[in-house]
C-alpha cells in the first residue's frame, strides 16, 4: 500500500515505493513555486500548527512557505523543549491541539521519539520536522530529490555523509532513504562522532576525508553541531577543518565530478570551505528549493482525504469532476 498513513515520523519504516511517491509528487510542486501566483488551493481551509520546541529559522520558514503555497492557514508556536522547565508537558500540548481541532502539526522537538509520541496521541496528522537525534524525514527526502535531479537516479550511487553522525538526525534519515532506494552509503568522521554499531546499518566507514572523496559520487556534509556537543568530542574547530574539512584542494583530487550537499546552516571554514559551498559542485541552494516542494508534497499526500465523503457525493447519477 503506497498511501502514507496518518503521520510522517521518519524514513526508517517507509517502503521504497512510498518514498518514490513523495519524490514524484514533489516534482509538479516545484513548478508551483515558479509561478507568478505561488499558490494552489489544495489545502484551503486546513489549519496547520508549526510546533517548534527548538529554534530553527530555515526549516520553519520552508514549512511555512509550503503550507501557505497550498493555501492552508498556519500558526507558529515556539515552545520550550526543556524537560526541566516547569510548563506544559508534551502530553498536555498534544491534548490542547486536539481540542482545538488542528488538522496538521509540524513538530520539531529535542527528544528522540517525540514526533511518534505525539502522533500516537492525537488524530491530527503529525509531520516530524526533527526529533532529537532520531530522524528529519523531510530533509532526507529533499536530499534524495536533489540527488535524483542531479544524477538522474539514486540506485548504485555512492553517497557519503561527512561529519557529526552521532548527533545527526539528518544522517539517520539519509541512511534509511538512500539504502532503501539502492544507493551505497558511506560515513566519514572522527570516531568520537560516530554512533556505535553504525556499520550494522549497512554503511561503509571512512576515517579520512580523502578516502571518502576518492570513493563517493556525492558528499553530504553535515553541520558540526556546536550546540549539541556536550563536551569535547573534538579538540577544536580548527583541527576539525584541517583534518575533515571539505576544501577545494581536497575536492580537486577527486577522481570524478563530485556533487556536494549540505543541509544548512553552514559553518564556513569548519566543515566546508566557502569556495566549495559557492562553487560548481555545490547543489546546496537546489536543496533549499527542493525543500519547499518536498514539504508541499508531504502535506498534500497526508492531508486528510475522506473517501466516504466521495462516495456520498457521488449520488444516484454518478458524479465526479469532468
Amino acid at each position: 500500500m503506497t498511501a502514507l498513513g496518518k503521520d510522517l515520523i521518519g524514513l526508517e519504516h517507509l517502503s521504497a515505493d512510498q518514498i518514490r511517491l513523495i519524490l514524484d509528487t514533489a516534482e509538479p510542486f516545484k513548478e508551483v513555486s515558479e509561478r507568478p501566483i505561488k499558490k494552489v488551493p489544495a489545502l484551503r481551509g486546513k489549519t496547520i500548527v508549526n510546533l517548534f520546541f527548538e529554534s530553527s529559522t530555515r526549516t520553519r520558514i520552508s514549512f511555512e512557505f509550503a503550507e501557505k503555497r497550498l493555501s492552508a492557514d498556519t500558526v507558529n508556536v515556539a515552545a520550550s523543549g526543556s524537560s526541566v522547565q516547569k510548563g506544559e508537558t508534551l502530553v498536555d500540548t498534544a491534548r490542547n491541539l486536539e481540542a482545538m481541532r488542528i488538522d496538521m502539526v509540524v513538530m520539531r522537538h529535542p527528544s528522540s521519539g517525540a514526533a511518534g509520541f505525539l502522533g500516537d496521541r492525537i488524530r491530527s496528522n503529525v509531520i516530524n520536522a526533527g526529533d532529537g537525534k532520531h530522524e528529519h524525514p523531510t530533509q532526507g527526502l529533499l536530499d534524495l530529490l536533489t540527488i535524483r535531479d542531479k544524477h538522474g537516479k539514486i540506485e548504485g550511487l555512492k553517497v557519503c555523509l561527512v561529519g557529526d553522525i552521532l548527533h545527526s538526525r539528518v544522517a539517520r534519515s539519509n541512511i534509511w532513504g538512500l539504502s532503501k532506494l539502492g544507493a551505497e552509503v558511506g560515513v566519514c568522521g572522527p570516531d568520537t562522532l560516530m554512533p556505535r554499531g553504525i556499520e550494522e546499518l549497512g554503511v561503509c566507514r571512512f576515517r579520512r576525508i580523502e578516502e571518502a572523496i576518492e570513493w563517493a559520487d556525492v558528499l553530504n556534509v553535515l553541520r558540526l553541531q556546536l550546540e549539541r556537543m556536550e563536551g569535547g568530542f573534538i579538540p577544536s574547530l580548527r583541527e576539525y577543518y584541517r583534518v575533515f574539512g571539505v576544501t577545494a584542494e581536497r575536492l580537486a583530487q577527486a577522481p570524478r565530478e563530485l556533487t556536494v550537499m549540505h543541509p544548512g546552516p553552514m559553518n564556513r571554514g569548519v566543515e566546508i570551505d566557502s569556495r566549495v559551498a559557492d562553487g560548481k559542485h555545490s547543489v546546496i541552494l537546489d536543496q533549499v528549493t527542493n525543500g519547499v516542494a518536498v514539504r508541499m508534497a508531504v502535506l498534500y499526500l497526508l492531508a486528510g482525504g475522506r473517501p466516504e465523503l466521495a462516495e456520498a457525493a457521488k449520488g444516484p447519477a454518478g458524479g465526479g469532476p469532468e
Binding site: E12, S112, G113, D131, G132, K133, H134, E135, R169, R172, P195, R196, G197, I198, E200, L201
Partner: peptide
C-alpha cells in the same frame, strides 16, 4: 549499542 543508534538516543 545498535538499538540506541537506530533510535537516536
Amino acid at each position: 549499542g545498535l538499538v540506541a543508534t537506530r533510535l537516536g538516543l
